[in-house]
């Protein structure tokens, strides 16, 4: 298969959530190679890992994020694609380790203090990972101090805050003040069901998005370091 064809097929596997040859989904791709096999093939054919990542995987995931935003597909579909993405990423891991491949940057994600909601943040994290960023997930009920420690461990990172209730959403402000007090230049994006652009502006967040794709766009336009 020519390079372009291979990458195009791989991108399609991500878009359609085709994990590997054995996975029965989607029915019209039954028996065909999935993201797993095609990534291996691409690398074995000598396509540079960076091309595999940028010209197939990331493009595929971007399309998925856009279709989700337009309500053409829904969370389970996004998660199917994320699964295909992570099967592909397994093959790229060694290149990240050896520095042959670099993440576009790092985002530290967490649900703020007092809130235990996890799923929304995890979905955003998967899509962000699919865009070639490294995600450090601090989990839920994360204190401002913990965020600060994470920033010290990941210099130059971006922070993503999630909350699902208006009563916990206010802890975003505390967190932003705490972290920016020490790292004024750090970029912080907020999200979660009750959060609005207006609220984000008010508490001094740098970004807000109601959906994962908006987070990716924020990262790629406002947070790239090189």
């Amino acid at each position: 298969m020519a390079t372009d064809n291979l990458l195009e097929s791989l991108k399609r596997c991500i878009e359609r959530g085709k994990v590997n040859c054995k996975s029965p989904h989607p029915p019209d791709m039954k028996g065909q190679d999935g993201a797993d096999e095609l990534t291996r093939k691409a690398l074995d054919t000598g396509i540079p890992p960076q091309d595999v990542l940028s010209n197939a995987l990331v493009l595929g995931m971007q399309h998925v994020g856009e279709r989700f935003r337009n309500k053409e597909i829904f969370v389970p579909d996004v998660l199917m694609s994320a699964k295909a993405m992570s099967a592909a990423m397994e093959h790229l891991k060694p290149f990240f380790k050896s520095d042959a491949l670099k993440h576009r940057g790092t985002i530290v994600m967490g649900t703020v203090l007092g809130d235990l909601h996890d799923i929304g943040k995890k979905i955003v994290s998967m899509v962000i990972e699919g865009a070639g960023w490294e995600v450090v997930d601090l989990g839920t009920d994360v204190s401002p101090e913990k965020f600060l420690t994470a920033v010290d461990q990941h210099p130059g990172c971006v922070i993503g805050l999630s909350a699902l209730l208006t009563t916990t959403m206010i802890n975003m402000e505390t967190t932003i003040r705490h972290v920016k007090g020490k790292h004024p230049g750090i970029k912080i994006i907020v999200g979660g069901a009750p959060v609005t652009q207006e609220f984000a502006n008010k508490i001094g967040a740098d970004g807000y998005s109601p959906d994962p794709q908006g987070a990716v766009e924020f990262l790629n336009t406002r947070c790239l370091q090189n």
Partner: peptide, 18 residues
Amino acid sequence: WARDLIDSGDAVKGYIAD
């Protein structure tokens, strides 16, 4: 259970359970 499913890599199932 949903959280365990997601953490073990089965996010689709976990999300549906949730």
